[in-house]
């Protein structure tokens, strides 16, 4: 059935809105870079935000990292044991955690915890005119609220990813030690022997890109929130959904790029 003129109008309007949104996001990102590299720099606020993003996520990251390492090892053992290769467990786990699981899981957890918090916090500030109040008191709210938060999460995510990796390996070690009585030294010697510089590099690169994505998605949604409390909820929700979606897309692109140069 051919769409009627009203349906055509709605489709055309949706396409217009999509491209306008894309333009707004790129304007937001270009403003971020412009403001981030021009003085005055908000060092004190960046440190405060690093504490909020990094330190306050440690418990969650510790728990999920430990469980991921432990469960992944436990699930992988039967397959490797069936052809007598359970001694490869440390190598398998270290490669899986460093290359893929640590950056991906940490980024997803951070998108849920920090991205939604940013969306809701900035969204509520926007709808209650706190951002306007900041602007009329001669403070640049974009620099103070957005630049500091995006920089903080971009700086902290690589650290959280390394921490996740370490805790994940500890979880794996506990399982291996309980089953094979492997020593701490032997486990980590075997684990690190399989990891190359490129693995570490790709992990750090991913975490920087993911951190930036979570920060921009959260701040963009919050900073542009509308329509009262409904808008705040929508901003928080969209921040998480968009960040998670983009993280998977970026993961796919970076893996292709790293494999090409491997």
């Amino acid at each position: 059935m051919e769409p009627n003129s009203k349906q055509k109008f709605i489709i055309s309007k949706k396409i217009d809105e999509f491209f306008i949104d894309i333009y707004k996001v790129f304007s937001f990102i270009s403003r971020f870079f412009k403001e981030a590299f021009s003085p005055p720099f908000e060092f004190q606020e960046i440190i405060k935000q690093c504490y909020e993003v990094g330190y306050k996520s440690l418990v969650l990251i510790s728990l999920t990292g430990f469980i991921t390492g432990l469960v992944f090892t436990k699930q992988s053992r039967p397959s490797l044991s069936s052809f007598g290769a359970s001694s490869w467990l440390p190598s398998l786990v270290s490669i899986a955690i460093v290359r893929a699981m640590a950056p991906l899981i940490t980024a997803l957890i951070t998108a849920g915890k920090v991205g939604s918090h940013m969306g809701a916090e900035l969204g509520s500030m926007k709808v209650t005119e706190q951002i306007d109040a900041m602007e009329v008191s001669a403070t640049n709210p974009f620099k103070f609220l957005v630049v500091t938060r995006v920089l903080a999460i971009t700086l902290m995510l690589p650290i959280l990813v390394m921490y996740f990796g370490f805790i994940g390996m500890m979880g794996s070690f506990m399982n291996v030690h309980a089953n094979e009585l492997t020593s701490y030294t032997a486990f980590f010697k075997e684990a690190f022997s399989s990891i190359s510089f490129l693995d570490i590099f790709s992990s750090v690169l991913k975490s920087i890109v993911f951190g930036f994505t979570v920060g921009i998605a959260g701040c963009y949604q919050g900073y542009n929130a509308q329509y009262g409390t409904v808008g705040v909820g929508k901003a928080a929700n969209t921040a998480v959904v968009v960040a998670m979606f983009l993280i998977f897309i970026e993961e796919m692109i970076i893996v292709q790029f790293v494999n090409a140069i491997r």
């Binding site: 500030m125 706190q130 109040a133 900041m134 008191s137 001669a138 403070t139």
Partner: peptide, 28 residues
């Protein structure tokens, strides 16, 4: 610079939720 000479009292007061009264006043 001009805004330093203009005070704006908002309908909703627009106080910063996460700051105490002292911090709100200190901020500008």
């Amino acid at each position: 610079a001009l805004r330093l000479k203009i005070g704006f009292s908002f309908q909703s007061s627009a106080l910063y939720d996460s700051m105490t009264v002292r911090e709100n006043l200190e901020f500008p």
